[in-house]
């Protein structure tokens, strides 16, 4: 479960001129009444476009997100942890399949999305462009990145597009062990030997900036998303989700006696919100546009996997089989 910090394009007046005013009215009324929109129903072109973009980014994030953690499968400390990490990584890839299917119902075939990922055209969650330097990094990812993703996904599962909500529900169900598994790993290291504590502290220092980036740019500088909020594509603002995450997890991190590398981080008694050092959004932009420590590696690995699987797909290919968009 890795979705978060989606990059939206600015919507112009909420709809394109081609859209039928009356249909748009009915569409918005349905959403306001809490109804779900299904694939074959009328929807504004802009809604379709933004949804494809968001669900596709989410799917790619699951696929690419499996890579930093996967780094340590072969060197996991102990057989049980190795099995658990493999199961988690398999889940993430399975979640990508569910999400690709949900996005496909909007008219973009899965293979086209995979192609757009490999050629660098599509985005995915920025955090996965950072390396998992040690085993402790995988523990911090599994606990805190998954926690951030859960906050985002629970909000999104109450959105307006039926297939996406259903995929998210299943994802959330399967997800329950990831967070526990990550927490267990962090607690084990944090309550272990001085060396283990040092490892997890260093991993936290490395991962804190990406975690703060995870929910996307501050509301002050991000593109206007009022229309997307009204259409229940985006369910909460980036800053609200970040605040929720801090509320839930900062105390848990402090409980373990770990230091968060932000001297300004504290709950403001007056506003009831967390004060923190503004994350470096220039770095965020630079990394998301391709110049992060692992961007090249992630895409090259994904491309190689695609190439290596080609003979299997060719062997199974039936020339008479025709592709149909799934119903989801």
């Amino acid at each position: 479960m890795y979705g978060g910090g989606y990059i939206f394009e600015e919507t112009k007046n909420g709809h394109s001129e081609k859209d039928d005013e009356k249909k748009l009215e009915q569409f918005e009324a349905k959403i306001a009444a809490g109804e779900k929109i299904e694939p074959s129903e009328w929807m504004p072109a802009e809604y379709r476009k933004q949804l494809i973009r968001m669900i596709e980014q989410h799917a790619h994030s699951e696929i690419i997100g499996a890579l930093p953690e996967g780094t340590w499968i072969t060197r996991a400390p102990g057989f049980r942890r190795k099995l658990a990490l493999m199961a988690k990584v398999q889940d993430e890839v399975g979640h990508a399949q569910l999400l690709y299917s949900a996005a496909e119902t909007l008219g973009k075939p899965r293979e086209e999305m995979i192609n757009d990922l490999i050629t660098g055209k599509s985005k995915y969650s920025n955090v996965f462009n950072y390396p998992a330097k040690t085993w402790a990094d995988t523990a911090v990812i599994a606990w805190l990145i998954d926690a951030g993703a859960i906050i985002n996904q629970v909000a999104n599962s109450k959105g307006s597009y039926g297939p996406y909500c259903r995929a998210l529900e299943r994802i959330c169900l399967e997800e329950s062990f990831h967070l526990k598994y990550g927490h267990d790993n962090v607690v084990f290291l944090a309550t272990g030997t001085p060396k283990q504590r040092e490892m997890v502290q260093e991993a936290l220092i490395r991962w804190w900036p990406p975690i703060m980036h995870f929910f996307g740019p501050s509301d002050k500088i991000s593109v206007h998303t009022e229309t997307l909020m009204r259409w229940k594509v985006k369910m909460a603002s980036n800053d609200d989700m970040r605040q929720k995450f801090l509320d839930m997890y900062v105390p848990k991190i402090w409980d373990l006696g770990l230091t968060i590398p932000d001297p300004k981080l504290k709950k403001n008694e007056e506003t009831g919100k967390w004060d923190y050092t503004e994350p470096d959004w220039d770095e965020f932009k630079r990394v998301i546009n391709g110049d992060g420590p692992c961007n090249k590696e992630r895409l090259a690995v994904r491309r190689r996997a695609e190439e290596k699987g080609e003979w299997v797909r060719n062997a199974l290919q039936r020339p008479t089989e025709k592709y149909t968009i799934p119903l989801a």
Binding site: S101, E104, P109, E111, E112, I114, N115, I118, T119, G120, G290, K296, L299, A300, R303, E306, E310, R313, N314, Q317, E321, K322, Y323, T324, I325, P326
Partner: peptide, 17 residues
């Protein structure tokens, strides 16, 4: 390769769903 390859996948396997 260190240089990113931006070529499209040659053959799209549009399997049946």
């Amino acid at each position: 390769p260190e240089q990113p390859n931006t070529e499209s996948i040659k053959d799209l396997h549009q399997w049946q769903t």
